[in-house]
Design a protein around this nucleic acid. Structure first.
Lengths: 124, 124
DNA sequence: TCCTTTGTGTCAAGCATTCGACACAAACGA
DNA sequence: TCGTTTGTGTCGAATGCTTGACACAAAGGA
């Protein structure tokens, strides 16, 4: 499994937060399943070019959310699903779709315009 | 015209940046047209509950991008369109749609799942 | 058992952001 | 003309994030 985690240096959003969002989405979407192991702090920090403490902060926050479990020497893994993952997965996509549509409408785009733009990206 | 600008206190993204993105989108989408006046620094700062300097930073950055023009005593207005707004408008939506689809695919959702989720939000 | 890996915690330093307040200059309106 | 509005700039203080380094504890592997 090759994790695709990236940081945008031009984004004023703090790196620990950029990383947290990506991992949270990957887990909720099921790309990372319960028990899956995440990269060690030092490795991920080295790959992304940030300090160890920054990645540690991301892992800590996700553990507080119940998405990860960490053990010294044992690494950091995706927590056993407390809730039904299938439901979360569906809700995540539904929320993403709703956000996208709401944002487009708020910018004055008509439903027709939105549909046209989407049909360029999706086979239908 | 009642601007809908909001700040999420829980979002670690700096307020000046949250505001900058919203205004940039509104302008590019054409919701705010050339010559339209924006709220005075002090008024917007008061409404959003932030310091004047924070809103000033947002206006300054947008002026550097060429989207706004500011004059002492004259207020801040949307700059005269340097480029064809119609094109920008279309490209903005196209980019938003592409980002949404790419993100969903990256999270492992199939095109079919994406279409189903969207059809719940859009009449078609 | 012993060494390595790994997460956790601390620390000081630097930097960016925000805040609140104030002063100033330019445009506007009566 | 004169007072108001408005953007700009500065200042010090506070807060939060990142960095780099270090030590420590727990788990795993040879």
């Amino acid at each position: 499994m090759s994790l695709v985690l990236t940081l945008d240096p031009d984004d004023p959003t703090p790196p620990y937060e950029q990383l947290r969002r990506q991992l949270a989405d990957l887990i909720t979407a099921g790309q990372l399943g319960p028990g899956d192991r995440l990269p060690p702090l030092r490795q991920l920090a080295g790959d992304l070019g940030v300090a160890v403490g920054t990645v540690a902060r991301t892992y800590r926050e996700l553990e507080l959310e119940g998405l990860l479990t960490s053990r010294r020497g044992g690494g950091t893994r995706v927590a056993a699903a407390g809730r039904a993952r299938a439901t979360d997965r569906r809700q995540l996509l539904r929320g993403m779709a709703a956000d996208f549509v709401a944002r487009a409408r708020g910018l004055g785009f008509t439903d027709e315009e939105i549909i046209v733009a989407l049909s360029r990206q999706l086979p239908s």
